[in-house]
Nucleic acid binder design. Structure first.
Length: 254
DNA sequence: ATGACTCCCAGTGGGAGA
């Protein structure tokens, strides 16, 4: 069983790439972030034609998430229960006994901004909800664009980024809180090349110079540890014409 | 370098992303 997450930065622009990628990588589950489409405009037919059941939770211009599954998902939840939020950031469902949560974590903009305060509130609510979900669903996957680089080795220039958004101690503490709740960073369960990133800025020839951050993650509950076989970042789509600035992350479970 | 690119909604510019 393979699961993947990809921030597509506008599904309207990236749909052909998503269809091509799924044809080449027929994963069982794909969560998307930054679809930027209201549900009425979601390309459901095109994805169903590829054999995927579609759950979407969108909004205009910003945010928007989706859950694509080969087997229809049940118990679908949109956003964090009990956390009042105008932004469409979370979609969850159960597939073959696996609780899958796809999330687009807030960016936070700058550590002294209102958006950072919102990011902290959102992270606290997410962690509390994930802990409750874990108690009910021991087999759980939390994946998406976390907008957090967990460690300095996840940053191309950790000195320049020290204390900056994605790298603040507060954000990293929240990431560690998810780990402490009983989740594993699937990518770090395996030997990986140094300088592995999931996002590269569009500016500055950043991809060509491999200047990026690892901010897209797949976290697995402890109960899934015996099943995990591999976790990779697929850089190929970043080489496309008009790429997303993020690359997909894929995990394989036995 | 307070930039650089891309997307969106706008409406021939500006906010947001990360």
């Amino acid at each position: 069983m393979k699961l993947a997450t990809w921030n597509v930065n506008s599904l309207a622009v990236r749909l052909p790439q998503v269809l091509d990628w799924l044809a080449a990588n027929p994963v069982d589950v794909l969560t998307l972030q930054e679809t930027k489409l209201v549900d009425e405009k979601f390309p459901q037919a095109e994805l169903e034609a590829l054999g995927y059941a579609v759950q979407c939770f969108g909004q205009r211009t910003y945010n928007g998430v989706a859950l694509l599954t080969r087997v229809a998902a049940s118990d679908v939840v949109k956003n964090i229960p009990g956390f009042d939020d105008e932004q469409a950031r979370v979609i969850a469902g159960t597939i073959q006994g696996l609780r899958v949560i796809g999330a687009y974590f807030p960016n936070g903009q700058a550590p002294d901004s209102d958006k950072f305060t919102y990011k902290m509130r959102w992270l606290a609510a997410l962690r509390a909800w994930v802990q409750a979900e874990l108690a009910v669903h021991p087999q759980l996957v939390l994946m998406g664009d976390f907008n957090i680089a967990p460690e300095d080795r996840d940053v191309y220039d950790p000195v320049a980024w020290a204390g900056q958004i994605h790298c603040t101690p507060q954000e990293r503490a929240h990431f560690q809180g998810l780990i402490a709740a009983g989740l594993l960073d699937a990518f770090r369960l395996f030997e990986q090349p140094p300088k592995s990133w999931s996002w590269w800025d569009y500016r500055n020839l950043a991809f060509r110079k491999n200047q990026g951050l690892r901010i897209d993650h797949i976290l697995l509950s402890e109960a899934l540890r015996p099943r995990v076989q591999a976790c990779v970042i697929d850089r190929l789509p970043r080489k496309n014409e008009r790429p997303s600035d993020h690359a997909p992350v894929v995990v394989a479970l036995a």
